[in-house]
C-alpha cells in the first residue's frame, strides 16, 4: 500500500469517527439493542464506499474500521472490538465472493454490510463479556432484527450514494479510482 492510499484511508477513518461522535450520542439514551448502528449507517456506507473505490485492495474497509476503532479504543476496547470484528467479517465475505474490490458490486456489498454487521459483532462481544446486555439482546430478537434491517437499508443506501459520488468525481477528475 502506498503512503497516498494510507493517508486517504486515514482521512476517511477520521470522517467515520466524526460521524460516530455526531450521531451516536443522539440515540445513546434509547434502550434498544443495536440502535447505535442505525443513524450512522448511511454515512458509514458512503465513506467506506469512497475508501474502497479509491483503494481497491482487500483490507481497505478493515483499515478504515480499525483506525476508527483505535480512536475509540481510547474510550473503550469494546467499541474497538465491535468495529474490527464487523470489518473482518465484511472483508471475509467480499474476499470469498469477489476476491477484492475491483467490481463495484463488491464495494457496494462491503460498504453496505459494515453498519448492520456491527450489531452481530456487538452480540459476539456481549457473549464474550456476558452481563445483562447479552440478555437484553436475546430478550427482544425482533427489535434487534428491526435494527439490523434499518442499518442494512441505510448502509446500502449510503454505499450506493458513495459509489454515485465517486463516479461523479471521477468524471470531474477529482477522485482517481483504480
Amino acid at each position: 500500500m502506498k503512503t497516498r492510499d494510507i493517508v486517504f484511508l486515514a482521512i476517511m477513518a477520521a470522517a467515520v469517527t466524526l460521524v460516530g461522535f455526531l450521531t451516536i450520542p443522539l440515540v445513546l439514551a434509547i434502550p434498544i439493542p443495536g440502535v447505535r448502528s442505525v443513524p450512522a449507517a448511511l454515512f458509514y456506507g458512503l465513506l467506506l464506499a469512497l475508501g474502497a473505490l479509491k483503494v481497491r485492495r482487500i483490507g481497505s474497509i478493515l483499515a478504515i474500521a480499525a483506525l476508527n476503532g483505535l480512536v475509540l479504543l481510547m474510550m473503550s476496547w469494546i467499541m474497538f472490538l465491535n468495529n474490527v470484528i464487523a470489518a473482518l467479517i465484511v472483508e471475509l465475505i467480499v474476499w470469498l465472493l469477489f476476491r477484492g474490490y475491483q467490481k463495484e458490486r463488491a464495494i457496494l456489498l462491503g460498504a453496505g454490510l459494515y453498519a448492520p454487521l456491527t450489531i452481530p459483532a456487538n452480540l459476539l462481544v456481549a457473549i464474550f463479556i456476558g452481563g445483562e446486555y447479552l440478555g437484553q439482546l436475546l430478550a427482544t430478537p425482533w427489535l434487534v432484527a428491526l435494527m439490523l434491517l434499518a442499518a442494512g437499508v441505510l448502509g446500502f443506501a449510503g454505499a450506493f450514494l458513495g459509489l454515485r459520488i465517486g463516479k461523479e468525481l471521477n468524471k470531474a477528475g477529482i477522485l482517481k479510482t483504480a
Binding site: 493517508v7 477513518a13 477520521a14 466524526l18 480512536v71
Partner: peptide, 21 residues
C-alpha cells in the same frame, strides 16, 4: 510506521473535518 502515521492522521483530522463541515 504505517499504523503510527495513520493513527496520527485519524486523530488529528477529526476536529479539522468538524470545522470543514
Amino acid at each position: 510506521r504505517i499504523i503510527a502515521l495513520a493513527l496520527l492522521i485519524t486523530i488529528r483530522f477529526v476536529p479539522v473535518l468538524a470545522s470543514e463541515m
